[in-house]
């Protein structure tokens, strides 16, 4: 239980840090900053949840997976709110037009939708029925990778690292799937 509370607070702390930076400390381009910050949090947590299932045979931490997954959605949702409230300034026409028009935005929207679906169906009763669809998380990983690469003018070193981690996880997962098939 203690671990659970600590994990909850640890995962919440970036949001508090963000709020502190936006409200108290002067950030020159706050909206851009919120995008980068929440996007990075969400991607790192997305990687973490998938890693937990990859290493489950060595260390089983699956009981924390749901919380990390929910936080992934939480940061993705702030990311979206930033788009809707601060960037689009509630201009629904703009949101719809951009979402249909600009590839990186519709990829982000699809990912958010899948993450939202997973968050809603993560309660025990629903999870039993829908867990099979939670494999869409790998689709989300592919989509958000294209999403953040496509949103840049040129990739930074951090983003190259994300790309490497992404390739690593995907290769590892495919390898795991393959060995499962062979075992069967």
């Amino acid at each position: 239980m203690i671990i659970r509370i600590l994990l909850f607070l640890t995962l919440l702390s970036p949001a508090l840090f963000l709020a502190f930076n936006i409200i108290i400390v002067e950030v020159l381009e706050p909206v851009k900053y919120i995008y980068t910050f929440t996007g990075a949090c969400s991607i790192i947590l997305l990687f973490s949840t998938t890693l937990l299932s990859l290493i489950k045979n060595k260390i089983n931490l699956l009981k924390y997976r749901r919380m990390i997954g929910l936080y992934t959605f939480f940061y993705a949702f702030i990311h979206f709110l930033n788009f809707f409230v601060f960037d689009a300034q509630f201009d629904l026409n703009f949101v719809v037009k951009e979402s249909l028009d600009k590839p990186f935005i519709y990829l982000g929207m699809i990912s958010l939708f899948i993450l939202g679906f997973m968050a809603v169906t993560s309660f025990k009763s629903l999870y039993k029925k829908y867990y099979i669809y939670h494999r869409f998380i790998y689709l989300v990983m592919i989509l958000v990778t294209i999403h953040f690469v496509n949103a840049q003018k040129a990739l930074s070193i951090e983003q190259w690292v994300y790309l490497l981690i992404f390739i690593f996880i995907m290769a590892f997962k495919m390898n795991q799937q393959k060995s499962l098939l062979i075992k069967r």
Binding site: L28, E29, F86, D87, Q89, F94, K102, P103, N150, A151
Partner: peptide
């Protein structure tokens, strides 16, 4: 091609 140019954000301002 990837983003709108209709608006801009002046540094230090929150809204566009």
């Amino acid at each position: 091609p990837r983003w709108s140019q209709a608006k801009e954000r002046v540094l230090g301002k929150f809204f566009k």
